[in-house]
Design a protein around this nucleic acid. Sequence first.
DNA 1: TGTACATCAGTGAACGCGCGTTCACTGATGTAC
DNA 2: TGTACATCAGTGAACGCGCGTTCACTGATGTAC
Lengths: 205, 205
Amino acid sequence: MPKRGYHHGNLKQALVDATLKLIEGKGPSGFTVAEAAKLAGVTPAAVYRHFEGREALIAECALQGHRIFGDLMEHAYADGHPSALAAFEATGRAYLAFARKFPGHYMAMFESGVSLQSNSQLAIAADRSRGVLERAAEKLSEHIPPHKRPPATMFSAHIWALSHGVVELFARGNPGAKAPFPPDDLLESGIGIYLRGLGLIPQDK
Amino acid sequence: MPKRGYHHGNLKQALVDATLKLIEGKGPSGFTVAEAAKLAGVTPAAVYRHFEGREALIAECALQGHRIFGDLMEHAYADGHPSALAAFEATGRAYLAFARKFPGHYMAMFESGVSLQSNSQLAIAADRSRGVLERAAEKLSEHIPPHKRPPATMFSAHIWALSHGVVELFARGNPGAKAPFPPDDLLESGIGIYLRGLGLIPQDK
DNA sequence: TGTACATCAGTGAACGCGCGTTCACTGATGTAC
DNA sequence: TGTACATCAGTGAACGCGCGTTCACTGATGTAC
């Protein structure tokens, strides 16, 4: 048990956790401060001891998400071991794993519309997230013959877009777009085909 | 000028148009019935002469969107002429063109969370949208040797996810994920690499 | 063509509600002596 | 160790607001004779 401080203990984090759970269930614009407070066992007014307001609460969720995300991706990439290719594929899997394991964080990061301008800590963390993906792409693209090598940023943007699209369309209880395949398979096979198109995987298995 | 009917003329469509403009600007959960009414030059109460409520208004936007979308995709695919490959690429471009030209519709369709269960007309239109993409994928995948041919539904899911991801991450005024490349280029190059991976485009140009 | 009547699209005012936020407070915890 | 005081996390009640929605109405339009 973490050290209990004043009255509640660690209310700030408890509020973040409650917010994440609510966002996961009803989306970033569906949750209310009052609900989050109630879920943390506290009066709505108590929220304002720890956060400037609703937006700051969401921003903290996004910030923590970016930190977890960055760590996960960095760990998955593992500096390109055992091979750049294997590391890259692990990074793609880690992306989806993050989205599924931390849906509240994911939504706060990419669907809440929190502005990065007004929160420099958040901007830094978001930059780092993007950086990890880009470095992985860069390392991997060294294996592509230079004359047919796309810019690493484009490469990573493709993978990111594919991953995000799979998450949004197929990895949610999304009504209307029933998942035709498990999202993991969909992303893995999609990345596989894409990498084959870059000549990073032999054309015939 | 369309024939003016009773008092306003075609208020129902005017409300839909206003809603689309508002959704485009502030997202599906950011618009209000009162704003839409005001933008259409009418009292909030007038909305309820034409729609059951807020949700029905959004659903109508999504419905019209799916119809435009289906028509566009069908036209772009053009029954596989001049070639299945060219037609498929045109379909991909049409996807992005739709998202950019009708952002309000796109958001109402894919980001509003309107339930398809409760609106059978909408469900039918959404099915058709998916159907067009899938038929295009099916036609094209006939050119892949059967033993390495992925299911057409997976194929189309990949393209859809990539397209959606590009739209969400890079084709919006999205704060935080500054577009590293024009979205059109990003999608076109991504689809190109993917199709190369399927052996549908020769490996070296 | 002119008049009397029926229809119904849009009005204006009001409703209940739940939201985010504020404020004076209180009482448990930490600290100084 | 015991007492007096300072701190400040959380309370409870209230606020102003804008939302979606309702309702009796009114007056422009369409129709019958």
